[in-house]
Each structure stands twice: as C-alpha cells, then as structure tokens.
C-alpha cells in the first residue's frame, strides 16, 4: 500500500514515528514548538509530546547546537533544525569542532547521536545568506555523516535511519522539495545511510547527483531520451558515507559522467567525486568528467540573476551533449 504526501509531511512522519518509538528523541530549534516549524513539519508535536521534547529555542544557533552535542553525549537523540543551512556558520564550532570530533578525540568513548536538519538550496529568491548549498562544507569534516535526499520516500526513510544512527548526521533538505507530493509506502520502513539509488537506468552517460537536482536531471534525461540519448540518473542520497560501489557500477556501464549539484563550483563536493573518479576509474572514461554546479558567486536575489546560479534541466542537457560530443 502507498499514499501520496508532501516531502515536508514525510519528514514530519519520520520525526513523529521516531519520537513515539524512542523517548530519547527530542526536537529543538527556532519556531519548532508553538508555531510547529515554518514549513509546518512539527505542527501538533508540542501538544502531543510536551515542552520538554519539542523545544523552541532563542535565536542562538551556536548555543543550542552546543547543547544538542551535550545532550547527545548523555544518550539523548536530539534532532535540531537550523532554519537555513547558511546559519551553520554561526553554529560552526559545536557542529564541526565538537559533534564531529568528540568520538575520535576521546578515543572512541563518546557517541554523539544528534541529527541536524538543515533546509538548503537555491530558487526561492532568498538572496545571499539564505540560499546556499553547503555540502562541501559539511563533508569536509570527518566525523559527520551527510545526507541529501530528494524524494518523499527517501526523506522519510533516511531521516529515520539518521535518528537511529549513533553518529552526528547532517540532513540537507532542499526547501523547494518540501511542497512536492509523492508516493510513499503506507507501512513503516527505513532506508539505510550510504546507499545510492538509480532513479533512472540508462547506458550512454551517468548523471551523479542528489537533492533537488535529481528532479532536474530526470527532466533532462527525458528530453535527451527524445533525442536518442539514454542517460542514467544516480541519486547519491548519502554523501558521507558515499556509495562508491554504485558509482563504479554505473560508470563502468556508461563510461561518461557528469556530476550535478547546486554548490559553488569551486571546492565543491561534486569536484571531490570528480577527482575520485579521475583517480580510480580513469580507464573506464570515454571523456573527461564534467561538474555542473552553481557559479563561483554569492547567491543573488533577482530572478534573472539567481537562475544563472544553479543547474536547470536545459543546463544539464547541454552538459550531457558536450561530454558525449553530440
């Protein structure tokens, strides 16, 4: 049995199911309790679970992310929301120096089973400080796991796995996916971290991507199919751990690769994957790997400017043709 719900509702279901299952799970962040989150993800939670487990914080990101680390070290499972992933810069120390490193620095004594949900991504005309895709920023730090699901089904199943994981997990949620309605299973399910998913099979070229760009890549694949180009869309879903086996399998089949993300191109995680393919799968490649990313600019406000700053289906179509020399 399946049902059709929005991505935001799917995320809410994951949180709800895990809070019912495990009383160590609690939620904290800005506007999470009384308002029930700006995207209505936790509406009704305060009434159901009470103020100890659904906590409205002041606008003190470094403070409450630090508290999540401390609570997690005590065995709680905090699920923290940063209203925008851009705000990670003001919470950098607890996330990057504390949550990420505590286990290693303590010689394996500490576990920090916290989840940070971070709405991200371009396209909402939110300008320079509310539109970034910071995959590279989080993936750089050993100790963090990083996921970026696209579909409602993945968002729910992976968030549930993230909450049960004993490591700190950063969940990047594209804001423009929240309202999308999709089929998900009626019954409870989990999707493990670290498993990529082939969203479309193809034989001519592999598009490696994640988050909202999966949908754009699937649109591009459709356009290309009409022109006789058969593209595979590999949705990584999980960036750390990375499903390298899935990449090897796909690249060994298609021999051509582009990597699509909304990140600033310079220093992007897309670039990291490109480097790994170049180092280890060079003999499989018929053409150089291309990164299809945002520009090396600050996220602009005006629609005509912002639309230049993340890959669209037509950008992806052009890149595929360039790589295939068609």
């Amino acid at each position: 049995m399946s049902k059709k719900i929005t991505v935001s509702k799917a995320i809410g279901e994951a949180l709800h199911e895990e809070m019912v299952r495990d009383d160590k799970v609690f939620i904290m962040g800005e506007d999470m309790a009384v308002m029930g989150n700006v995207f209505a993800i936790t509406r009704g939670f305060l009434e159901e679970f009470g103020p100890n487990r659904v906590i409205d914080t002041p606008i003190s990101e470094e403070g409450f992310c630090g508290m999540a680390v401390g609570a997690a070290m005590r065995g709680m499972r905090p699920v923290v929301e940063l209203m925008y992933d851009d705000f990670a810069t003001v919470a950098a120390d607890p996330l990057l120096n504390q949550a990420a490193k505590m286990r290693y620095m303590s010689g394996g004594q500490a576990t920090v089973p916290m989840v940070l949900r971070a709405p991200m991504g371009a396209g909402r005309r939110n300008a320079g400080q509310h539109s970034q895709s910071l995959e590279n920023f989080f993936c750089h730090f050993p100790g963090l796991k990083v996921i970026a699901p696209c579909t409602a089904k993945d968002a729910k199943g992976m968030l549930k796995s993230a909450i049960r994981d004993d490591d700190p997990v950063i969940v990047l949620e594209h804001k423009l996916l929240y309202a999308k309605k999709e089929e998900i299973p009626e019954e409870e399910y989990l999707i493990p971290l670290g498993q990529a998913d082939v969203k479309r099979e193809g034989k001519d070229l592999t598009i490696i991507t994640w988050s909202r760009e999966v949908n754009f890549s699937l649109e591009a694949a459709q356009t290309l199919a009409a022109e006789g180009i058969d593209v595979e869309v590999l949705d990584l879903r999980s960036l750390v751990p990375l499903d390298w086996d899935a990449i090897v399998k796909s690249v060994s089949k298609t021999h051509n690769v582009i990597i699509v993300s909304e990140e600033v191109k310079r220093g992007s995680y897309a670039g990291e994957i490109s480097a790994q393919i170049a180092e280890e799968l060079f003999d499989e490649l018929d053409a150089p790997v291309e990164r299809v990313c945002g520009l090396n600019i600050v996220p602009p406000f005006s629609p005509t400017l912002e639309d230049e700053n993340f890959p669209h289906p037509d950008t992806i179509v052009k890149a595929v043709k360039r790589v295939l020399n068609k």
Binding site: G66, M67, V69, A71, M73, Q98
Partner: peptide
C-alpha cells in the same frame, strides 16, 4: 564530558547535559 580545546565550548555541552537531565 570532555576536556575541550575550544574556549567556551563546554558552556554549550554542559548546558546540553543539564537539558538531558531535565528531560
């Protein structure tokens, strides 16, 4: 809960541990 090389980091961690005790 850890000796910390970042000045002030223990403030969040100690408050968070206290939050865990309260919950």
């Amino acid at each position: 809960l850890g000796a910390n090389g970042i000045v002030g980091a223990g403030q969040g961690i100690s408050a968070g541990s206290a939050l865990a005790s309260k919950i």
